[in-house]
Amino acid sequence: MKNSANSATRKARWITLVAAGAAVASLTVGALPVAASAAERTPAPVTGTFHGPRSVNTAALTKAMAPGKVATGTMVRLGGPGVRWTEATGPLSQDPAANFRIGSVTKLFTSTVVLQLIGEGRFTMDTPVQEILPGTLPAHWQPITVGQLLSHTSGLQLPCVDFVDGEAPTPEQVISHWTDPKCAAPQYPVLTQQYNGANYFLLGMVIEKTTGRTYADEVQRRIARPLGLRHTYSPKAGDRSLPGPVLADASEIEPWAWAEGGMISNAPDLERFMTALMRGRLLKPAEQRQLFTMPAIADKANPFSMAGLLRQEVGGTVVWGKTGSMGRSTSGVFATDQAARTVVYSLVPATRDKDLMRAHIGALVAAGL
């Protein structure tokens, strides 16, 4: 039986984990202005050639990476045709292949697998998740589609109950905390995006139910092995180990992040994955278009595409990507059209000041792109 102190601690940690992805996503937004008009927030699929200003400002990058009051350690890797630059400062491994927990960047792998399944005709963007996972959501809820889960437009609210101390919960148990009768039900109609990890827990369950294999196996079979991502995998529930070399210690983690934030990777692997994704090597054309199509109710501050990519602008250039946080690490990967330029970063924050973090991450991404 848990005591009240443990219960309060677990609840605080859970709410922090649930909100972490949204908080980290907003860090980048503050420094990278978003298009003002609805038309600009609903771009056509990216197919052209990148023509932005592309001299790498390594001096600005080095300055932004210097250990200080914003971050105690920072790693940045730049990629693209004819571009290769990696540097790490502070208490971070100097090995460019060092591993780290990628947090909510995991969602890009989840959405890629889901879109592949759509391309195979297993289900559609409009298929209600209740048809694939009967009994998982309350019977009186309105249908929530796969597309709404991918684009964070499901209306799912935050959980309001604790976990019982002990072993790592299953995905089904995690979802039960979002659907408990004591918690707020989805609000209809859904008027705007609301970033929520529950969407991607459900998508992980969709992957397993549809394929008959584990989420981890499908990521390996469909993405990691074909692309040669030797450092990229989803650990088993409760596995807190991080194989060396390690970029930054992240031992203080929760074991249930799974398909919404539990994967491990490194900078070269994330660069290769993002390049393949942006260049259409992982998806069929119809599903590739979903990567860059914005829902009608896209959030103005943190706009996610129908496939869950965060859309931002740097000096008038559109970039796509995802941020994440797990343990002490805050990370992200962004790319321009056709991956003409990619940026992967990971840092150990030294402050909780969101304004400072926005400026710092914005400087890293802007100088790199």
Score class of each variant (00 low, 15 high):
W14D: 15
F50P: 01
A39T: 14
T330K: 05
D239A: 12
G262W: 11
A8S: 09
P226V: 12
W85M: 06
S4G: 03
T330I: 06
D217R: 14
T47M: 14
V343R: 03
T317F: 02
I132E: 06
M205V: 02
P285E: 10
G155I: 00
E287C: 12
W256I: 00
P171N: 13
K354R: 12
R122L: 07
I118A: 04
A248H: 08
P128E: 00
P159Y: 01
A366F: 01
E87N: 07
G166V: 14
T89G: 02
V164N: 11
A276C: 05
V114T: 06
V161P: 12
P268F: 07
P96L: 06
T192Q: 06
G321Q: 01
A139Q: 14
R240P: 01
K2N: 07
T74V: 13
E313M: 12
M357T: 08
P169Y: 02
F201G: 07
P138F: 01
T210S: 15
F50Y: 12
V343N: 03
A359N: 12
A267Q: 04
V365M: 11
S241D: 04
M294W: 04
R54G: 09
G82E: 11
A367S: 14
A31V: 00
P33S: 02
S151P: 10
V76T: 07
A60D: 03
A359T: 13
L356I: 02
A185Q: 07
R279D: 06
P96E: 01
V190T: 01
G68N: 01
A139T: 07
T210N: 05
Y188V: 12
F50M: 11
S325T: 14
G244Q: 06
A60Q: 09
D165M: 12
S7G: 15
R122H: 13
T124S: 15
W85Y: 10
A20M: 11
G135P: 03
Q130C: 03
G48F: 06
Q193W: 07
T351P: 02
P67T: 00
P295V: 10
T9F: 10
E172D: 13
N6T: 09
D249I: 00
R279A: 01
Q312F: 04
S104T: 00
Y233R: 15
I253Y: 01
P171H: 11
T211F: 11
L356A: 15
A5L: 15
S151E: 13
S305M: 06
S154E: 01
W141K: 03
V29N: 13
G155D: 06
P33H: 02
L17G: 08
A168H: 03
P255F: 09
G261V: 14
R311G: 04
L227P: 05
L133H: 09
Q220H: 10
A35D: 12
K322S: 13
S241E: 05
Q148V: 08
S329N: 11
E167M: 10
D239W: 01
S234H: 11
P91K: 00
E271S: 08
G362I: 08
P43I: 06
G238Q: 03
S329M: 15
E208P: 06
T89V: 07
A298W: 09
D337C: 11
M125T: 14
M125A: 15
T72D: 08
A366P: 09
G90Y: 03
A335T: 05
L310V: 05
I102E: 13
G362H: 08
A139P: 08
E254L: 15
W320D: 07
Q187S: 04
M274F: 10
